[in-house]
């Protein structure tokens, strides 16, 4: 399969295979992505996050369907948790999106978090770029069901929609630091249920405490019945316009790129020290000593780091 041209020609099989390969850290695929990176950046990236069962998939399905009516092409990346024990996963977000499966203007990909704890997977950034290069106008990232601190999504997107539901806790939950702070837009889903108004008021009261230039709108929706979806899309457009008119759009993307670069550096260092087979024994030996209290983990980590740096210096080929 000619992945490079396939991707440029927006062929679904090439897009799909590219995502598989970047998930597996395939060097050739990453090289293609490096070459084509200059063609990305046109898509608007929207994060959909919230607790498990809040209706993120159903809402994403409805948002995508509404954008399709306007002729926009929509990519969806839906992340679900991976078992920490077997590496297996049940990726079930598509269940809510089957109507979009045959739409040629939609591409849906499920991803396992694969050990990454921030709500998305390591390869999610790359998958977004692949869909971006393939010409999708809007890309949704649906996170795993989150708790209180999985905030990686904010550094991977332009707008974050936080999906809440009635009855999850009192106003103190809304006051807590972490996930409530990253929302650009709140959607109170299942708002045909008791307590929806109260949930909306609690979020509004929490927002009253903060004085930022953008006040996140709080919109009641019932995703299953397509209620409030147009208003939610208007919220997204308003936030997009705010970012552009206030001059913060580029700044936000710079912060996102910075986070991505730092993340990649971390991955490379970890790969170099921990996953490199020549060092595998070293880590084990240090761990044994640490468990027996013969060395402390702080010193062990520094020694391993220094050791791997020397190896890089000593062999020219590893430098690049």
């Amino acid at each position: 399969m000619d992945l490079l041209n396939g991707l440029l020609n927006k062929e679904k099989r090439a897009i799909a295979r590219m995502i598989t390969l970047v998930e597996a850290n395939d060097e050739e695929a990453l090289r293609i992505l490096s070459d084509l990176y200059k063609f990305s950046g046109k898509a608007y990236v929207i994060g959909i996050t919230g607790p498990p069962g809040a209706g993120k998939s159903t809402l994403t399905d409805k948002l995508a369907s509404n954008l399709r009516k306007e002729g926009k092409k929509v990519g969806i990346i839906a992340v679900d948790p991976t078992s920490p024990f077997t590496g297996g996963a049940i990726l079930g977000d598509r269940i809510r999106m089957n109507k979009l499966a045959t739409d040629p203007g939609v591409f849906i990909r499920s991803m396992g978090a694969r050990g990454h704890l921030g709500g998305i997977s390591k390869a999610t950034h790359a998958a977004v770029k692949i869909l971006d290069i393939a010409g999708f106008d809007y890309i949704f990232i649906e996170t795993v069901g989150v708790g209180q601190s999985e905030i990686d999504i904010v550094k991977a997107t332009d707008t974050v929609v936080m999906v809440m539901v009635p009855g999850l806790g009192d106003d103190i939950q809304a006051l807590k630091a972490g996930i409530m702070e990253i929302a650009d837009i709140f959607a109170v889903n299942k708002s045909d249920r008791d307590g929806a108004d109260r949930t909306k008021v609690e979020i509004e009261m929490m927002l009253d405490f903060s004085c930022t230039n953008w006040r996140p709108p709080v919109t009641k929706v019932v995703a299953t019945y397509n209620e409030g979806i147009e208003e939610l899309i208007d919220n997204v457009f308003e936030h997009k316009n705010f970012l552009i008119s206030s001059g913060t759009f580029l700044e936000k993307r710079i912060l996102n790129s910075e986070a991505e670069i730092i993340g990649l550096i971390k991955d490379r260092i970890i790969d170099r020290i921990v996953n490199d087979s020549s060092n595998e024994n070293d880590v084990r030996i240090y761990a044994e000593q640490a468990a027996k209290r013969k060395i402390d983990p702080y010193t062990a980590s520094v020694e391993l780091l220094v050791k791997s740096m020397k190896e890089v210096d000593n062999s020219g080929c590893k430098k690049g």
Binding site: K12, A16, G88, R94, N98, A101, I108, R109
Partner: peptide
Amino acid sequence: MEVIYTGLRLTPEQIVQSAIQED
């Protein structure tokens, strides 16, 4: 394994398009 669970009452077209997108 990673299992993509797609649920009930699908057409062969939906299944095949999903399988391709999910690789």
